[in-house]
Design a protein around this nucleic acid. Structure first.
Lengths: 235, 235
DNA sequence: CGCGACATTGAGTTTATTCAAATACGGTGG
DNA sequence: CCACCGTATTTGAATAAACTCAATGTCGCG
């Protein structure tokens, strides 16, 4: 377990949304220059180290977050203390949307790989979306995207044998990328994503390596044999 | 397998939204009388028999549905043809929200118990929500509710042993009700909800009956021993 | 009554889990 | 630079759980 770093201390500064390098893929994609002038409250930007927590389940937050780079896991806990990872949040994703409907955060959001986020105060998003049907629309889109993702995790990652689940997870990690390269998560996290034990995750990855479905090109960089992984994912 | 009934033929007539008996729990809860006057397109109402299909995954729909009574399952299929039920839709729930963001339906929506729905054309909802922040807000709420439900299915219903999952499903069926009575689904559907086989679902229910965690008071009416089911759900 | 659909049960097999041990890895301090 | 420590991963062996395939039982309906 890595120590928790308070991310308040990690504030990097104010974001320049108008000239944001991710502008076209971000919540504010459709805003015009004059809209940004309404942004009196500055958008803060943070860099969070692996192992730190962006927010906790149950917290009453007033900010949602756009991820500029890195990876977060959204975790829920069962009464017996076991954890389940319900989603991954990656570059250009938004997390913490729920606070716009007044709910507390529904998960622990924990950094897996060093992550840069922009914090968007609910108040700012609400004001802007009042005037901007496009932003409103984009909010709905984001919600639907999260829902599709949740359904896919259930259908693809929590159904079938351990081998199938691991294969599907790996394939999912390289979708929408040219590279068939990716780095893997700790086996414990894999287990928590797939609803299997750490040992089973480890055994499965080890077997994939032996079958060359997976080749470690450099430390924690894996090249995937996508066609054969597809085969493994289906039967 | 029950034959599919085209629900076009089942149209019961026009709904009277203003005087709807479910008014306070429904998407249109916050609308005022004058808003309803803008409703030039009538809201159609249908009754669907068990086994019929409300919509199919991939269809480009222009209507979402409020469920007045009954139960639907939302089903997704894996490439190998196996099915997974990702959510249940019950009284006062809305399904098919995704068509408001222009997506095709993401699931097959299949009736488990005779169901009454009102069909809300996207165009109507869009127009009303333009003028009504409350309706807009309610839409976001509904989306978030679906997302919470999806996460809960992953955390509660797809994690742990078969016994735990079945127990959690049963408990979920009587939440928000006074009665600790419920009727059960076909074992095959239970399996598809929990990510287990039909036989395992059957064996587990049979065992619960023997342990009196479950008593059949009348055909397919079961009385639950909630405290002991809670115990079973946790260890 | 008999058919068909569904539910239950059984036996054998496979798969995943548990618990324990051994190994690799990264980082720290001597 | 190396020894050492803690942590994560891998592997092993025994056990338990779930799956498969087949048979039997049950219920409702024509």
């Amino acid at each position: 377990m890595v120590k928790n770093v308070s991310f308040k201390e990690a504030r990097d500064g104010e974001a320049d949304c108008l000239n944001c390098s991710l502008r076209e893929s971000v919540l504010f994609a459709e805003l015009k220059e004059e809209d940004f002038e309404q942004l009196h409250d500055p958008i803060d930007q943070y860099t969070l180290p692996a192992g730190s927590t962006l927010y906790h389940a149950g917290d009453k937050g007033d900010r949602m977050y756009t991820v500029r780079s890195g990876t977060l896991k959204l975790v829920q806990y069962l009464p017996d203390g076991s954890q389940r990872i319900v989603r991954l949040i990656r570059s250009t994703d938004i997390t913490g949307l729920e606070c716009i409907v007044g709910e507390t955060y529904q998960h622990d959001a924990i950094v897996l790989q060093e992550t840069e986020v922009c914090a968007l105060p609910v108040r700012v998003v609400e004001e802007l979306s009042k005037e901007n049907p496009a932003l409103y629309r984009e909010l709905l889109n984001r919600w639907q995207r999260a829902l599709n993702e949740a359904d896919a995790w259930l259908t693809e990652l929590s159904t079938g044998s351990a081998k199938q689940r691991v294969a599907r997870l790996l394939l999912r990690l390289v979708r929408n990328t040219q590279e068939s390269q990716c780095n893997l998560f700790a086996r414990e996290d894999m287990g928590a994503m797939l609803g299997i034990t750490t040992e089973t995750a480890s055994r499965t990855i080890a077997e994939f390596k032996r079958q060359s479905l997976l080749v470690e090109t450099s430390p924690n960089q894996f090249l995937l044999d996508i066609p054969n992984l597809h085969r493994t994912a289906e039967d």
